[in-house]
Amino acid sequence: MSTKPRVESALPGEPVSFATAMMHAPDILTRFGELYADFWQQGIISQEIKEMTRIRNARITDCGY
C-alpha cells in the first residue's frame, strides 16, 4: 500500500485529494457525483444505514475514507 499520492492534483496549488486527482477526468467526476447523489439521497434505505455499511466496507478493505 502506498503512503504517497500516485496521481498529482489536477488543480495547480491545490493539495492532492480524491476530488483534485479525479479532476484530471472532470466528466467522470461529474457523472460520479450525480450517481452518488442519487444513491445517497433516493431510495427506501436510510442514509444512516448506508453510512454504516459504507464505514464497515471501508474498514474491511482498509480504506481511509
Partner: peptide, 13 residues
C-alpha cells in the same frame, strides 16, 4: 433514475 445515472457514469468512464 439510478440506472440512468449509472449508465451515464459508466459511459463517461
Amino acid at each position: 433514475a439510478l440506472a440512468e445515472r449509472y449508465a451515464a457514469f459508466l459511459s463517461s468512464v
